[in-house]
Simulated scan of single mutants.
Amino acid sequence: MVEIQIIERRPRGRPQLRCDDDTKSLIIEAADAQFRENGYAAASINAIAQSAGVSTKTLYRLFPTKADLFSSIVSDRISRFFLALDQSTLATMDLRQGLERLLTAYGMLTMSDDTIDIMRLVIAESDRFPEIATSFYETAIVGSNAFMEKWLTTQCERGLIRLEDPHMASGMLRGMMIMEPQRAAILRQLPPPNIAEISRRARICAEVFLKGCQV
């Protein structure tokens, strides 16, 4: 009997140890730390790649420009905010409970240490790099406002609240929730509020807001 040996051909090069999504997450985490520590202009692509454990070739394949990296950092934060506020979960809550949940999650997103650092970076470097201001505004500010506006519109359609302009009301509600403590933190006058302080502020904001629009 003749034995037939089958030689398995292996792909050339080193085997891929992780998928692109996992690699992107590592790069985003490393870039976030680099931007926060050194600023946008001084952030080193080589240092980001080294910290993430990837080659610069891989980094540029996944993120062709530094602006793409920054945009992905902002998108990653907003995605976590949306995941924490699934619309189907909010739909099971009563009006006040849902609004408090929404405001608490928004406060935790916008007044965290890392978000405060990113906002300082945008303010400091947007004159030289207007693309980071555009990215932050469109992804973080417009995106979160649209989510809140959609929730308010739904409550209007349910007949629970009455608003002349849900879009404008959303902006006012967001400002009431974060403007004073966030500005104080950005200007290094006060530390960002802790979870208990954010929750208390969300409760008070929800109470004030609903007194003005609840049917």
Rank of each mutant, 00 (worst) to 15 (best):
A202M: 06
S170Y: 01
G159P: 11
A185I: 02
L99P: 05
N194T: 00
S44W: 05
G53P: 10
L190Y: 00
G13W: 06
A185G: 07
I132C: 04
I7W: 12
L160S: 11
E164A: 12
R188N: 07
C156R: 11
A185K: 02
Y137R: 11
P192D: 02
R61I: 01
E125P: 04
A206W: 01
A105N: 08
F209N: 02
P166H: 12
R158W: 03
E3T: 08
G98I: 05
I161P: 12
Q5V: 11
A47T: 10
S135D: 14
V122P: 09
S72L: 01
K57C: 04
I161Q: 13
A49W: 06
T104W: 02
C205M: 12
Y60I: 03
A30Q: 08
I198W: 01
K24H: 06
D22S: 13
V215T: 12
A49N: 10
I78F: 15
Y137C: 08
L152A: 01
R96E: 13
S79R: 13
I45L: 15
N145M: 14
S51G: 04
G171V: 04
M148T: 08
K150C: 08
A169Y: 03
Q182C: 09
A196N: 11
T23I: 14
N194A: 02
E138W: 09
K57P: 00
R162G: 05
C156T: 11
D86N: 14
A196F: 07
P193K: 10
E131H: 08
I48D: 05
L90H: 12
L103P: 04
A184M: 14
L69K: 03
E8V: 10
V208F: 15
R77K: 15
R18Y: 15
R36Y: 00
F63E: 05
G212H: 08
C213P: 08
L210G: 07
D127H: 13
S75E: 15
I198M: 09
I195H: 10
P191D: 00
L187F: 12
P166I: 06
I118Q: 00
T104H: 10
I195C: 00
I141E: 09
Y137V: 06
K211T: 07
S44F: 09
R128F: 10
I118M: 01
R203A: 15
V54P: 03
N38Y: 13
I186L: 03
L152W: 10
E197T: 01
G107E: 00
L163H: 11
I178F: 12
N38Q: 14
D68F: 10
R200W: 07
R128P: 03
